[in-house]
């Protein structure tokens, strides 16, 4: 297994590229939104909100299961233990 600093060195350019891609997509959305008449719902759009929450999660200390697991759960529908009752199965 490589050491932590080696992983950082190895992965830096790839992660940098992915972060710039994220920034560019958000810029693109904002740039086009600025030309549209109705933009009121964009900031509260569930997908936009989820992306911003995900970005915030990356900056927090790692959750017990890790950041990847935390993001996966953020992007997931919740599990309802009583699903059998809801679906009558």
């Amino acid at each position: 297994m490589p050491q932590a600093h080696q992983i950082l060195d190895d992965q830096f350019l790839q992660v940098r590229a992915k972060l710039i891609e994220v920034a560019a997509v958000l810029d693109r959305i904002d740039r086009v939104a600025a030309t549209e008449l109705t933009t009121a719902d964009l900031e509260s759009h569930p997908k936009r909100v989820a992306l911003e929450q995900a970005i915030g999660l990356l900056l927090q200390d790692a959750a017990p299961g890790g950041r990847a697991e935390a993001l996966q759960k953020l992007f997931s529908r919740p599990y309802d233990q009583r699903w059998r009752d809801s679906l009558s199965v």
Binding site: Q72, S76, R77, Y79, D80, W83
Partner: peptide, 14 residues
């Protein structure tokens, strides 16, 4: 897939 995986996997395990 995607947003349905977590809930669906738990249902399957149940």
């Amino acid at each position: 897939h995607l947003e349905d995986k977590y809930q669906g996997t738990r249902m399957i395990l149940d």
